[in-house]
Design a protein around this nucleic acid. Sequence first.
DNA 1: AATATACTTAACCGTTTGGTTTACTATTCA
DNA 2: TGAATAGTAAACCAAACGGTTAAGTATATT
Lengths: 136, 136
Amino acid sequence: MEKVGQPDPSGEDERLSRLFRALSDATRRSLLSRLTLGPAKVTDLARPFRMSLPAVSKHLKILEDAGLVSRAVRGRVHRLSLSGEPLRQVEIWLDPFRSYWEATFAGLRRDLSAHPPRAERRRPRGRRLDSGRNGD
Amino acid sequence: MEKVGQPDPSGEDERLSRLFRALSDATRRSLLSRLTLGPAKVTDLARPFRMSLPAVSKHLKILEDAGLVSRAVRGRVHRLSLSGEPLRQVEIWLDPFRSYWEATFAGLRRDLSAHPPRAERRRPRGRRLDSGRNGD
DNA sequence: AATATACTTAACCGTTTGGTTTACTATTCA
DNA sequence: TGAATAGTAAACCAAACGGTTAAGTATATT
């Protein structure tokens, strides 16, 4: 289990917490989905949303702070691109639980139960790079 | 701040948001880890933490609301157990991004075919391709 | 019946979050 | 140079968070 005695600020827990918190907003998840299609500038990312530009700007900063997007400033244009690596961290955190939910639904999900618990999982073929959620 | 197109309260996005939010706290993640060892009652779950019992109780409620733990009340004892299923939802959400972080490292040649890039197009300096609508 | 145990609920409090509007800075265009 | 464009920063606000203590509700125990 984790450390429960000390706060341990800015440690591993903190990073994971920031990551999950960044993912806990539908707008932010939508932005990430959009970015799987390729890098984009802030105004383009903001266009589909009803909210103001500063609001989207803040969301992007949160994603950036979580390490999920990186920013390349060229002139006045900020080009955001997806950094998938932190999501790998999520995957890693998730791993010990995988056998748990697979046990719960053993045999019901062919594509998931096909993989041995805790093993390096193969990516199911034919998955599309789109969450299907939100305004995409 | 949910929707982009339609107001979809209490929908799929909302469920995912609650899930990620539940995971965004180190105490809650620690509780989940503890529960992989088997069901436990509230007092046992609370013991390792410095915080008060009601605080832990609230955390457990949040996990329960996210569907991550289920509760079986027997007498005055609440027996909490892990429900891995929502974590499978996280996995499913994560899946479209998997090729992305895999491509970040080596072996990207094969995985790049999964990407629809070419938004990468860099326009020559001094030339105005932007017709005023959408730079990409 | 009285008391202890296992919890939740309620009320409260400071901080964070997600949004707004109004500046402000920096770059590009005419 | 002046104006438009791309974006952040600041100030503000209501609501949600995460914690506290105190009170309340059931169930066991003696």
